[in-house]
């Protein structure tokens, strides 16, 4: 198996603060990997570096053999990395369908002039976008809400719409930032099944940040653990569960008398 994503010695410094340093990750095609760690460990910062929101100050990010560290976010997305956000960032005043269409944007070809003059390429392009976007809404059970404004959806559906939107950008690698945050156990369970399903359906590689240990331990094949901006462990869920460093990071040091 070839490495789809290879991260070498990745680090970022904000002024005098080294938020993340020496992170090495490797993800093979088709894997589902978890990234966990206590609050403030640098998980989302790592995501932001992988997706181009922050330019790393050290290290390399290789995706599909190409270096993508420091590229603009939209270029990273077009290379095939797509993400969701920890605090939902839907386009609130757009309809559910339009939210997905926006993400589908990068895959369409018709240009500004063809849209202004309503050339045939505009119509064929827009019809294709509509069909593809509707297909994603169907998978996520949102087709009944296609004309509803995104801000009017209930919370759980907004989370699902975020994943649908991320998929519409046509990624090879999907980064999910706490997809189950704020969900009840039933919703979390449904979400797990959905993630497993889309992974098979779209042949995706997934990197997942999550605090819900049941979800992480339940579906991830391997887990990386961050603490204070550094990787402290990686391995299978069973290995992570019994790793003393991980326990220490989460529960604190044992007091010896």
């Amino acid at each position: 198996m070839s490495a789809l994503l290879k991260v070498e010695n990745l680090g970022i410094q904000f002024g005098g603060l080294k938020a993340v340093q020496n992170v090495n990750l490797q993800m093979n095609q088709g894997e589902l990997i978890g990234l966990i760690g206590p609050n403030g460990a640098g998980k989302t910062t790592t995501f932001n570096m992988l997706t181009g929101v922050y330019a790393p100050t050290e290290g390399k990010v290789l995706f599909d053999g190409k270096s993508i560290g420091g590229l603009d976010p939209y270029k990273v997305t077009r290379q095939g990395i797509s993400r969701t956000f920890q605090n939902i960032r839907l386009f609130k005043e757009l309809s559910v369908l339009d939210n997905v269409k926006v993400a589908n944007h990068g895959l369409a070809k018709h240009n500004v002039l063809s849209s202004i003059f309503r050339l045939p390429s505009h119509f064929s392009g827009e019809v294709k976008m509509e069909e593809e976007s509707l297909a994603f809404l169907k998978i996520f059970g949102l087709e009944g809400f296609r004309d509803e404004l995104a801000k009017n959806l209930p919370y759980g559906m907004q989370r699902r719409l975020e994943i649908a939107r991320a998929l519409a950008a046509g990624p090879k690698l999907l980064l999910l930032d706490e997809p189950a945050a704020g969900m009840n156990p039933q919703e979390t369970h449904d979400l797990m099944e959905l993630i497993s399903f889309v992974r098979k359906e779209f042949n995706l590689t997934i990197l997942l940040i999550e605090h819900d240990m049941n979800l992480v331990m339940g579906i991830c094949e391997r887990i990386y653990v961050l603490d204070h901006g550094q990787l402290i462990a990686d391995g299978t869920p069973a290995e992570i569960r019994s790793n003393p460093k991980v326990i220490e990071a989460y529960l604190g040091e044992e007091v010896t008398e």
Binding site: Y74, R89, V102, N104, G106, H110, S115, E126
Partner: peptide
Amino acid sequence: SRHGRACIAVREDEIAADAMGI
């Protein structure tokens, strides 16, 4: 058109629009 939607996406949330490949 997709271009207008892209502009509205920028208005709604620039970071998310960027992350969606716009």
